[in-house]
C-alpha cells in the first residue's frame, strides 16, 4: 500500500511535470499539449519512485528502461527527467529551438535520460520487446516500461510486438496505454474504435489491468501488481484525459497539437500553480 505522504509526493511531481511541460510548450508557442498532459501522472509515478534509475549514470546497465513510444509526449518526459535531476530545468526552454537537445519527439541520442528514439508510432513497442529480451538474456532483474498512446495502438506493429512479447513470456515488460480517448483527428471511437483494450491484450496473452490514469495511487498499485505477475507481460490501461490539468485544453476538442499564446500559458500556469499550492499545503 502506498502511504499518504508518497501519494502527495507523486501528485506534486505530476503537477510539476505539467507546469514545466506547459512552460516549455508555452515558451515555444505551440506543441503537443494534450498527450503530454494526459501522461504526466504515470510519468510522475515512474520517475518519482518506481523506476530504478540514476540520473548521474543515465546509461547504467541495470537501470529500468522507459520507452515512450508516443514520442510526441516528449515535453512531459523531458520535464520529468529535468525534475528528477538529469539536466537543468532551464534547458526545457530550449524545446525545439535550433540546436536543442529536446526535440518534439524523444531521441536517445540527444537527450540525457531518454532510453529510446520514438516518433513513428508503434515502433517503440518492438524496441521495448528487444530491450526486455536483451536484459533478460543478461540475467538482469530490471524492468522495461513502455508507454503507448491509445491512437497509437491502431498501428499493426503494436500487435506484432504484443504477440511476440507474450510468446517470450516477457514478465519484465510493463506497458501503459494512455487511453485519453482522442487522437489527432478526433475521438478514437469515431475514427477507429479501440474497443476493450484490456481484453484485447489479454487475448494476446498479456496480464491486463485498467485504472484511473490520473490517479497516482491507482497507477502505483497497478505497477506493483504487474510486478507480481510471472510468465507474461503486463499492460495497464490508463483512463486519462487529454490536456489534463489545464481546463482550457481539456475542453478544447482538437487538443492534440495546440498553439499556446503567452496569455494562455499564464492562464494554464496559474491554474496549475494553484493546484500545486493546494497539494503542497494539504
Amino acid at each position: 500500500m502506498l502511504g499518504a505522504e508518497k501519494i502527495k509526493e507523486f501528485e506534486i511531481f505530476a503537477l510539476k511535470i505539467r507546469i514545466e511541460a506547459m512552460k516549455a510548450i508555452g515558451n515555444l508557442g505551440f506543441g503537443h499539449v494534450g498527450g503530454a498532459l494526459s501522461i504526466a501522472d504515470a510519468l510522475a509515478v515512474l520517475y518519482g519512485g518506481v523506476m530504478n534509475v540514476d540520473p548521474k549514470n543515465p546509461r547504467w546497465d541495470d537501470r529500468d528502461w522507459l520507452i515512450c513510444s508516443k514520442g510526441h509526449a516528449g515535453p512531459a518526459v523531458y520535464a520529468a527527467l529535468a525534475l528528477r535531476g538529469y539536466f537543468p530545468l532551464e534547458e526545457l526552454m530550449t524545446l525545439n529551438k535550433p540546436g536543442t537537445h529536446l526535440p518534439s519527439h524523444c531521441d536517445r541520442n540527444l537527450t540525457i535520460g531518454v532510453d529510446m528514439t520514438t516518433g513513428s508510432l508503434g515502433q517503440g513497442s518492438s524496441l521495448a520487446v528487444g530491450v526486455a529480451l536483451g536484459n533478460r538474456l543478461d540475467g538482469r532483474e530490471n524492468y522495461t516500461y513502455l508507454i503507448l498512446g491509445d491512437g497509437e495502438i491502431q498501428e499493426g506493429q503494436v500487435w506484432e510486438a504484443a504477440l511476440y512479447a507474450a510468446q517470450q513470456k516477457l514478465d519484465n515488460l510493463i506497458a501503459f496505454i494512455d487511453y485519453n480517448k482522442k487522437q489527432l483527428d478526433g475521438f478514437t471511437k469515431e475514427i477507429n474504435d479501440l474497443g476493450d483494450i484490456k481484453a484485447k491484450f489479454e487475448s494476446f496473452g498479456w496480464h491486463g489491468q485498467e485504472v484511473d490514469g490520473s490517479n497516482v495511487k491507482e497507477i502505483y498499485e497497478a505497477i506493483e501488481r504487474a510486478k507480481e505477475v510471472k510468465g507474461k507481460p503486463s499492460v495497464i490501461v490508463l483512463h486519462t484525459i487529454k490536456g489534463k490539468g489545464w481546463s482550457f485544453a481539456e475542453n478544447t476538442a482538437s487538443n492534440h497539437h495546440m498553439t499556446v499564446s503567452k496569455e494562455q500559458m499564464e492562464e494554464a500556469l496559474d491554474e496549475l500553480y494553484k493546484k500545486l499550492e493546494k497539494a503542497v499545503t494539504r
Binding site: 515502433q123 520487446v129 536483451g134 510486438a161 511476440y164
Partner: peptide, 25 residues
C-alpha cells in the same frame, strides 16, 4: 537462447533487433 524467430512479422523483427542492440547485443 540467442535465436529469436519472431514469426511472420518483419517490422517487429527489426524493432526487436534494434532494442536488443540497445542493450549491447
Amino acid at each position: 537462447e540467442r535465436t529469436f524467430n519472431v514469426g511472420i512479422q518483419e517490422a517487429n523483427m527489426i524493432g526487436v533487433a534494434a532494442g536488443l542492440s540497445a542493450t549491447g547485443k
